[in-house]
Amino acid sequence: MVAATASAYEGGFSDPVGAAQTVFRALMDAMARPGSIQPLPDVAVPPAPLTASAAALIATLADADTPVWLDPLLAKADAVRDWIIFHTGAPITAHQPDAAFALVAAPQNLSALNGFALGTQDYPDRSTTVILQVDTLAAGAPLSFEGPGIESRVKIAPAPMPQHFGAQWAANRQAFPRGIDLVLAAPGAVAALPRSARLIRQEA
């Protein structure tokens, strides 16, 4: 783990063009192959409790055109808010449906996924991409998925995850093509669960 920076002005990409491209390609591969674990270089040094992985992702994706929602744990950290505003120019929003991106430091406290923008039937792309900071992608409760990007089945075990994730994800999949996409930001790695991924009920 990387030490937190003191200032909002520090800890951004030292090579903005190269870092953004590297981080994006890892995320694109993660999104194209749901449940696969893609290595993510440590290229950002944000203030806690924002993690290096989540910070690298938001710095790659967000700008003045994309409002960012922070979960309560992040929202109460002024340094995090200032860091995001300074390094991305993104406005911070308190309203989940307005958010292009959501950053969640405590996924276990996230009670509902459907408060975010799910897009419309005409424009399903106008939805929130939710970035969850997780501790692990392999040591949590195993989840199996199938769907586009997955050869037959893929298993991933992220933790922590939102409450009642199975039911919430099933509801999200039900809304397809509307829905949120999940990005799992783990130490040194990223995985993604686009709305197209179908969670398979665990055999008892």
């Binding site: 994006f24 694109m28 792309d125 996409d181």
Partner: peptide, 14 residues
């Protein structure tokens, strides 16, 4: 690039 990258991610998801 960021704008296009965001569109690519949505495209992959849908």
């Amino acid at each position: 690039k960021r704008m296009i990258r965001r569109a690519i991610l949505k495209g992959i998801a849908i």
